[in-house]
Design a protein around this nucleic acid. Sequence first.
DNA 1: AGCACGCCGACT
DNA 2: GTCGGCGTGCTC
Length: 819
Amino acid sequence: MTTPRTGGSDPAAIAAGSAPSGAGGTAADGRCPPVAEVVVDIVAPDVDRVFHFLVPPGLRDRLEVGHRVTVPFGPRRVEGTVVGFTEQPGVPPERLRPIAALRDPVPVLTPALIDLARWMEDRYLCLFVQALRAMLPPGARGDRVRLAPRRWVRLLLDPAEARHRAETLARRAPRQAAVLERLAQAAPAAVPQGPLLAAAGAGPEAVKALARKGWVAVEEREPEPDEPAAASEPAARPPALTPEQAAAWRRLEAALAAVLGDAAAGDAPPSGGGVAARRGRGTGPGAARGGPAPEPAAFLLHGVTGSGKTEIYLRAIAAALARGRGAICLVPEIALTPQTVARFRARFGSRVAVLHSAMTPAQRLATWRAIRAGRKPVVVGARSAVFAPVPNLGLIVVDEEHETSYKQEEAPRYHAREVALARARLEGAMVILGSATPAVETYHRALEGELGLLELGRRIGERPLPAVEIVDMRREFGLGHRALFSRRLVDLLRQRLAAGEQVLLFLNRRGYHTVLLCRECGFVLRCPHCDVTLTVHQLASGRRVCRCHYCDHRQVPPALCPRCGGVALHPFGLGTQKVEEAARRLFPGARIQRMDADVTARRGTHEAIYRRFAAGQIDILIGTQMIAKGWDVPGVTLVGVVSADTALHMPDFRRQERTFQLLEQVAGRAGRGPRRGLVLIQTYSPDHPCLQAVARHDYRAMYRLEAAERRELGFPPFGHLIRAVVAGPERAPVEQAASRLAAAWRRAVDEAAVPGARVTPAAPAPIERLRGRWRWHVLARAVDGAALRAATRAVMERLREAWPRDVQVQLDVDPFSML
DNA sequence: AGCACGCCGACT
DNA sequence: GTCGGCGTGCTC
C-alpha cells in the first residue's frame, strides 16, 4: 500500500523535518531553488512519491510549498502539489522537465499541512497523495470550478435618476433599461452580475455599455460564502461562569498562556511562516510526562449535557485570537445547524468561516482561500475542517469527540480527533476534546495523564439529569403482554398526552430487523449482492418493498417462501413504521410524526419536522439516531426507548460504550424545560450492568466495564487494531489472496517480535458481498501500534509483487466498522 | 492511474 | 493482411 520515498515514513523523520531540503517555502530573497518536488495527483503506489520539476523563470519568485501545479508526466499532463524544493534532485538534470502551469495564485495548503500529510501516511498506512487529497477543498482539484472571481454590478447614479434614464433608454436599448431598473431597486447595494442578467433578460454587453457610460461599476469579488451580514457584530459580554466552569477555565487559561505565550507579549509568529519556525515550540500532549511539566497541551473536557462546555470553547478561542492565533472548532456534521453557527458568529462576527457539506465547490474554495489568507481566523466545520489551512493555528476544539462521524470510512481512513492532536503537536497548538460521554480511548488517555482532565458534573442552573426507569420486557411477555409498548409505557404516554406534554419514542435504526421471515422454515430474504437481510418498507400506496441498506437493491416481496413454498412469509421485527402504527392504534387522537432516513430523504424535511415539534405541533415523535442529537425542546418530558437490546447486542467491541452514549444522548432530550424528564427503557436484559450505569448516569461505571473487558481482549485503548479487507470480483482469488495475506502478516509480526501481536485467519467479511465484489478480511492486533504498522507496511510491500490482478487490499488502522 | 509498446486471434 | 485483446513497464 505504501512505498518508501524520499523523506521516508519513519515517524521520527517528521519531528526532525522531512522536507528534503528543509525549504519551507519561497526563500527570503523571494526566489526559490530551481527544482520543485511535486507529488502528482495519481492514486497508485507506484507513483506515490516525489517527482522533480524545473521551476520556470516566470515562477521563480512566486512558487511556494503548498501550491498546486500542472506538470508534464510521461505522455500526459497531470495535476500535483509542490511539497518542497531542492538543489540536487536524485535524477540526472537532462531528465528534468519544467512545471507547465501554476493552478492557483495562492498556495492552497500550508507547509504545516504537508507535514501533517506525511504523518497521516505513516499513521494510517495510506498513500501520501491520499492524505494530501483529503486536505484539498473539493473544487481545488480538476478545472471544473470557475476560478475567476465573480462579477458584481453597482449603480453609480441616484436610484431616481437611474429610473428616469431607464425610461428614456427603454425604446432604443430595452435590455440596458431593464438592467438599470433592477439596479435601482437594489440600490445602494451591488448585485451579482449573473442573476442580474438572468432577471433582466440581458447579456453581458448591456452591463458593458452601461459601464462605458459611467452609470454603473463592475466589481470583481471572490464568491462570498453565505454570511448573514446582520449577525456580524460581536456580542457585548459573555455569560458568567458557574464555579465548576470557572475552575476548568482557570486551568485552561494557564495552559493556553504556557503553550501559546502571553497575550500581551504579541509574540505570535508571522502569519504564513514556515512550520520549521514553530516546530518544537509546542508542548505535545505527551510532553507532560517528563519532569515537572506544567499542564499538557491537550485537554479532555468531560461535561454532562447542559453543563456549559460551549462557553469554555468560546473563551478558549477568544484567548487564542487575543494571541494572534487562529482556531478550528470541529463539530459533528449533524450539529452544524444554524443555531451552532449563530452562536459562533455572535461571539466572533465575520472572523468565523463555516465549512458546510452543503456548500457548492465554488463557495468552499472561496472560504478556503479566505481562511488561507488569514481573513477567517475562526473555522467551524465537520470532520474535514481539521485540515482548514488556518495560518498560525493556536487551538483545535473537537466537540462531541466520541462521535463516530469523525472517523472517515474511505481512504484515508483517518480519525479527525487523532489528526487534530497530531496537527496541534506539529504546529504548537492546543487541543480541547469535549464530550458528555467520552470515547473510552479518550478517557483512558486522560486517566493516564496524557490529556488534562476537566470535569463538569453539574448542569447550569442545577437542573437535575432525567430519571431513568428500566422495564423488564421478559416479564411483560411472560404475563402475556406481547405488544411493542409495555403497560408502563402506555400509561406514561397517556398521562403525558393528557397533560399536553411531548414525547420522543426512540428506536435504534430505521427498519432495523424488519426482515421477511418464513415462520414455517425460518428462511430470511437476503440481498443478492450484499449478503445482508433485506428490510421491508411500506410504501405510501400500501404496497411493500424489500430494500438493501447497503446497495439499495429493491425487490417486491415474494408471495410464497422461496425455500419451502409455504405461505408464512411475513415481515418480522421492529421498525419505526411498526412503532408508528402501534402508536396510532393506541392513540388515534394524538399528533404523531415519524422521522427516519426514509422520511427525511427529501431535503428540508428534517428542519421542517424540528420546527413543528419545537412549536408543539407534534405530540409523539418517533425516530432513530437523528432525533437523539442536539434537539432542545423544553416541552419533552418523556423519552421512551422502545428497545435497548439491538444496541446492546451489536457484534462490536464498543457496544457498551455505544449503548451508553446513545442512551445518554436520548436521555438528554428529556426535561430540557422546567419539569424533570423521565426516560423509560424497554429491554429483555434489564440487569445488564451497562443499562444500570445508564440508569445512574454513571459514566465511570461504564468506563470500568468496558476497560476491564477490553484489557482482557487486547482491544483499544489497551491494544491497536488494523483491519485489512481483500476485495475482488471473483470469490476464489479473493479468498486465496486473503489467506496469503494472513499468513504473511502473521510471519511478519512474529519475525519482528511485535509485542502482543495476534493475526486472525482470513475470513469472509460480515458483509461478504458488497456492490458486486467479494470481500474477505483479516484483523491484526498488537499492544504496540507503531510496531504493528511497521510490520504491516513491510508485508504490503512484499506482497505487492505477485499479487493477483483485480484483487485489492484496503487497510483500516483503528477501524470502527467491521462490516 | 493512464498510456505506450508489444505480441497473438478473427474480421472488413 | 490488419484491428484489437490486455500483459508489462514507466512516468521527474
